Every structure is written in structure tokens, then in C-alpha cells.
Computed example of a mutant assay.
Amino acid sequence: MSAIGSPSDTKGYHENYNFVQLSRNYLKEMRTLARKSPIAHEILYYLVEHMGRTTNAVVCSRKVLAEITGSSVATVGRAIRVLKDDNWIDTIKIGTANAYCVNERVFWQAARNQRQYAIFSATVIAAASEQESNYLEKAKHKLTYIPVIDDDNIVTTGNEELPPPDQKDLDL
């Protein structure tokens, strides 16, 4: 039996799972980005650190990125603009949050031959500071029972017990 990630691992999925690959062609531009906008550089590395294995995407709000970098939301907005203008990332709006898609020509995890599918999934990051103030208390409550419609089209709500089925309901 071989260790996961060894050359004889035939699945390949776990091989180098925690590694991110970087194209050497972009190192000079990365140094330029670090000088141009240290916050943009930090955000880019944060996104790469958390991006999905096959999609290079992370979903979070600018407020989360502001908390991560210790910057204002406005500063994060300017940094995101730099990253977009310089083609490090692209964004997809999802309500008030964004999916940040890292340029896969620069950073990637999965083999490039696994990138032929148009599947969108992402790492989603939600901060406690963005939730309702009582979200921890709400999480302790049992969810409401989902109504059930029986054969007689009677809506049942709450935790009421249904009568046992009549034999005429059984296919014998």
C-alpha cells in the first residue's frame, strides 16, 4: 500500500492537495503588484490560500476582506479594482457578496487537463460580524417542522401525529 500523494497513487485527487502551483511567468508582475498595492497583494494571496481546488473561486464580502486585512471596506474596494484591472482576478456578483475567481493561468491546484468543465463551486467565507446579532442563539433552536400534505390534501403543521394508514391505502 502506498502513501497518499506518492507517485504510485492512482487516484491523483489527493496528490499534492495542499499545494498551489504558480506560473514563473508572473513572478515579476507579482513583485510589481506588491509594490503598487500591498493590500491587493495580500488579498490575492488570501484568495489563493482559500480558493477551490478546481475552480479557483472564493465567495465572500468586502467586509470580510476588510477584517482579514485590517483595512477599510473602501480600501479593499480599491484593491479589488487593482486586481481586476491587472487581470489577477475576476468577480461574479452574488447578492451583496462576490465570487472572486483567481486567474488560473497564474495560480492553480488541479491538473490543467481537469479544467475543461464549466462547473462553478467556491469556498464561501462568512464572518460572524456579518450575521444577525442573535445568530448564535438562533442556531440553538430546533427548526420548525415542515408541513406535510397527505392523500386527502390536508396540510399538517407542527408536530401533530398522523393517524395510521387505513388498510384501503395499502396495495395488497
Rank of each mutant, 00 (worst) to 15 (best):
I43A: 12
F19Q: 04
T69E: 10
N18I: 06
K63V: 11
D90R: 13
N98R: 12
S23Y: 06
N103F: 14
C101Y: 09
Y17R: 02
T91W: 02
R78P: 00
L33Q: 10
N56T: 01
V64I: 06
N16K: 14
I39P: 03
L22Q: 00
D86C: 10
R81D: 14
R35D: 14
L47G: 02
V106F: 07
Y17C: 05
S72I: 06
Q21C: 13
D9N: 09
N87Q: 07
Y100Q: 07
G70H: 06
F19E: 09
K93Y: 00
R105I: 05
Q21R: 04
V64P: 02
V76M: 06
Q109S: 13
T32L: 14
D90P: 00
G52Q: 04
C60G: 00
K28G: 12
K36R: 15
I92H: 05
F19Y: 14
N103E: 10
W88G: 03
E67L: 11
I80V: 02
G95M: 09
A34E: 15
R35T: 12
A57S: 14
V48R: 01
V82P: 05
E49Q: 12
F19N: 04
E67N: 00
V64H: 11
Y45P: 03
T91C: 12
V59D: 09
T32I: 15
W108A: 04
L27Q: 12
R105H: 06
T54A: 10
E42D: 12
C60Y: 05
G95N: 07
E67C: 13
T69L: 15
T69I: 15
R78L: 12
W108I: 02
Y17G: 01
Y46K: 08
N25W: 01
D85A: 15
I92S: 00
L33P: 11
S72G: 08
I94F: 04
T96D: 10
N16R: 14
A97W: 05
E29P: 10
R78S: 15
V73A: 10
V73C: 08
A99W: 02
D90Q: 13
D85V: 08
L22P: 03
K84I: 08
F107A: 05
I39M: 12
T32H: 14
W108Q: 00
H41T: 04
A99L: 07
A66L: 00
D85K: 12
S23T: 06
A34W: 03
I80W: 00
Y13S: 04
M30H: 07
R105F: 00
I92N: 02
V102C: 08
A110E: 13
T55P: 04
K93A: 13
A34P: 09
V20S: 13
L27D: 03
I94N: 07
R62S: 14
A40Q: 04
A79F: 02
Q21W: 03
Y46R: 00
E42F: 07
N87I: 05
V106N: 01
Q109M: 15
F19R: 03
R62E: 13
S71V: 01
I94C: 01
I89L: 04
L44W: 07
A110N: 04
I43Y: 02
K63A: 14
A99F: 05
L47A: 00
P38S: 11
V59A: 11
